[in-house]
Simulated scan of single mutants.
Amino acid sequence: MSYLPCIEIEPQGSATASVIWLHGLGASGNDFAPIVPELNLPDSMAVRFVFPHAPSIPVTVNGGMAMPAWYDILSMDIDRKIDETQILQSAEAINALIDREIERGVESDKILIAGFSQGGAVAYQTALSYPKPLAGLMTMSTYFATHETLSPSAANQALEIFISHGTQDPVVPELLGQRAVELLRSKGYEPLYATYPMQHEVCLPQIQDISRWLQERLS
C-alpha cells in the first residue's frame, strides 16, 4: 500500500489515539507540527500526531503554478469552484491513513481528523463519510466544499465537530465558516463554533481551546 508521506510525532508510550492533521494550500506537514508541544497534552493520553504532505499539483488560481495542494481551486469567488474529483482522491488518501492507524492498534473511535483551510475541506469529506466511528472532526479557517455531494456515514452521524475561524480572515471569509455550521446543522450534526480576532492563521487562545477539546475527545 502506498501512503502519503507524513511527519509523525509519537507519544512516549504506545499510541492509543491518533490525530491526522491536514495543512493548507502551499504548505506542508511541517506547518502544524510545532503546535503539538503547545497543546500541552498529558502524557497519559498517548496521542500520535500524523501530518501528511499534500502532493504538488498545478493550481489554477495561482496561475497554474505547481505547489502542495489537496485539490485544484478554479476560482476564488465566495462559492469556491474546485476540482471535486481531486478532493475525493485526497479524502481516499486520508482514509488510507486512518486504516493504517487502525492496523497499528488504534481504535477508530480514538482517531480524530483535523484540517486547516484546504485541508479542512478534505477533512469534512473524509470524516463525515468514513464508514467506522471516529473520535471527532476539527476544522479551522475553512469551508464545506462537498456538502452537495457528500454521502454521510451512519457511523459518524453523531460525530463531535469543532469549527474555528478568524473574524478578519481575508482568504477564507468567516461567512464560509458560518455557512458550514448551517449546512452541518441542516444535515443533523451539532457542531461547536468558535471565532477569534485573527486573519488566516491560528492564535494562542485557539490553540488552548483545541487542547481542551482534544482532551475531551481523546482522554
Rank of each mutant, 00 (worst) to 15 (best):
S2A: 08
Y3I: 05
Y3E: 07
L4E: 06
P5C: 05
Q12H: 10
G13W: 04
T16K: 14
A17W: 04
S18G: 03
H23F: 08
H23G: 13
H23T: 12
L25Y: 13
A27R: 13
A33C: 01
P34R: 02
V36W: 03
E38I: 11
L39Y: 10
L39R: 12
L41A: 06
L41C: 10
P42V: 03
S44M: 09
M45I: 14
V50F: 00
F51C: 04
F51K: 13
F51L: 09
H53P: 03
A54S: 09
S56N: 07
I57Q: 06
P58S: 09
V59P: 00
V59N: 07
T60G: 05
V61T: 12
N62A: 09
G63K: 00
I73E: 12
L74F: 09
S75N: 10
S75R: 11
D77G: 06
D77F: 06
I78A: 01
T85E: 09
Q86K: 09
L88S: 13
A93E: 13
A93Q: 14
R100W: 13
R100C: 15
E101I: 11
E101S: 13
E101F: 13
G105A: 01
E107R: 14
S108N: 02
S108C: 04
D109P: 01
K110S: 15
K110W: 03
K110H: 13
I111F: 04
I111T: 07
A114S: 09
F116Q: 07
S117N: 00
Q118P: 00
A121N: 12
A123P: 02
Y124L: 06
Y124F: 09
S129F: 01
K132G: 01
L134K: 08
A135R: 00
L137D: 03
L137Y: 06
M138N: 06
S141W: 02
F144P: 03
F144N: 06
A145C: 01
H147L: 04
E148Y: 12
E148C: 15
T149H: 08
T149V: 13
L150T: 14
S151P: 15
A154F: 01
A154H: 09
A155F: 00
N156G: 02
L159K: 05
F162H: 11
F162I: 03
S164W: 07
T167W: 10
T167S: 00
D169H: 04
D169V: 03
P170Q: 11
E174L: 00
E174R: 07
L176H: 04
A180M: 01
V181D: 02
R185I: 06
K187Q: 11
G188W: 02
G188M: 03
Y189V: 05
E190W: 11
P191H: 09
P191T: 02
P191G: 04
L192I: 15
L192M: 08
Y193M: 02
T195H: 03
Y196W: 00
Y196D: 03
P197W: 01
V202P: 12
C203P: 04
L204P: 15
L204F: 14
Q206H: 15
R212Q: 10
R212G: 12
R212F: 08
W213N: 11
W213E: 13
L214V: 08
E216Y: 14
E216K: 15
S219Y: 10
S219C: 14
